[in-house]
Design a protein around this nucleic acid. Sequence first.
DNA 1: CTTTTGTATTCTGTATGCAGCATTTTCTGT
DNA 2: ACAGAAAATGCTGCATACAGAATACAAAAG
Lengths: 228, 228
Amino acid sequence: MNEITPLERRADGGPGPIRRTALHDTLVSHLRDMIIEGDLSPGTRLHEGQLGEQLGVSRTPLREAIKYLASEGLVELVPSRGAVVKRFSAKDVHDMLTVLQTLEELAGKLACEAASDAAIAEVRALHDEMVRRYKAGDRLQYYKLNQQIHSAIVQLAENAALADMHAVLQTRLKRIRFIGHEGPEKWAAAVAEHDEMIVALEARDKVKLSEVLGRHLMNAWERVRASV
Amino acid sequence: MNEITPLERRADGGPGPIRRTALHDTLVSHLRDMIIEGDLSPGTRLHEGQLGEQLGVSRTPLREAIKYLASEGLVELVPSRGAVVKRFSAKDVHDMLTVLQTLEELAGKLACEAASDAAIAEVRALHDEMVRRYKAGDRLQYYKLNQQIHSAIVQLAENAALADMHAVLQTRLKRIRFIGHEGPEKWAAAVAEHDEMIVALEARDKVKLSEVLGRHLMNAWERVRASV
DNA sequence: CTTTTGTATTCTGTATGCAGCATTTTCTGT
DNA sequence: ACAGAAAATGCTGCATACAGAATACAAAAG
């Protein structure tokens, strides 16, 4: 839970190409993070005047960003009453995981067919780094690398639509997974599954990879169901 | 290709509860339709001043609607140069159909488990009506009922996330499918597949239903690939 | 004391205005 | 006549201003 701070407007001046900071994108990312990290908890009204002042932006671009997030499914638009952070029920989460599972199974199949050896090696590097973080007990970095690996496998599939849908669901779920802190034994199980994954990927065994990815997400549900 | 007309602002006055027509939603739907039906073809710039004047709306709500559609993937935001209608390559379409196929296979499985008999009967009604339209050679109504049936089956699955993802992809593809006018023999094949579908659904044969749905979309690709 | 109604305030929804960037047109030099 | 530069135009991006709806509060009636 961070404190709400004004957006950096990149007064820049530093070397390198002048970053054309499209305010819209910055705002969207910032708000998205605020929702994911719980600065804006479910049910909270997005107060345009107040929020805009805190972020140092006028209401116009803020409203545009909110509309964007509404389409992404993170906030809900209530006519004449603005926007509220969407609240997900346990069933919602389960439903999302079900779809995510199907998508990752597909990604696994496609990845085994489409990925280059070099690309697979990069995922392996991420995996090894994640295992190191696990052994070091660094939960946050582990978590981030975990997400990166799943995204990376989806990228390997080289299917833009798949990547889109996956990203949307992953974003919606981030808020939940962020909370779901599993115990040591479940954590170990998750790492073991990841090990199976990377081995299957390197062997380009699409049946196996698909199966492990599916199982992994089923177990993810078991891990978080209590906390939802 | 319709002519661009001002939005109806619902001056209402009629009986019944006064419909609170949220302008945002109206605008989004209207623009979406304009893109799907080809009034705004791929690559076209969405000129805020001009478009706003044609629709009888100021730039502010128009810009908000555009941001919403951008998140939906129908338009692309180019910094400092506004928004253009997104253009899809043949690979893009194929990728979308691949994902849609996977989603519908899942929907088929879930639908067989979750749907009530009454709900299935409603889909059957849509199907019969569609067959009637087919026999009458009414392409437009056939097409619309076809889409409705696919959406209806997804609804039967009672999985909001699945329905969301399906709707997004279906919308993106509408523009394409609208163009893809298959010949008589392919049309007949599509109807035959639909027949298999409804039979499998009524039998709650999830393996069969899933298989037919998948096959149907594979064939859909064959039907449209030439025109993309 | 509870309930209801009228009023005031606050917030959303929409329009307008201004500044900066991109593009196009025009002018100048070779 | 052609190439390059400079000015001009048009559009986007952001901020501000105004109107209408919703809510909260207070006062009065039951």
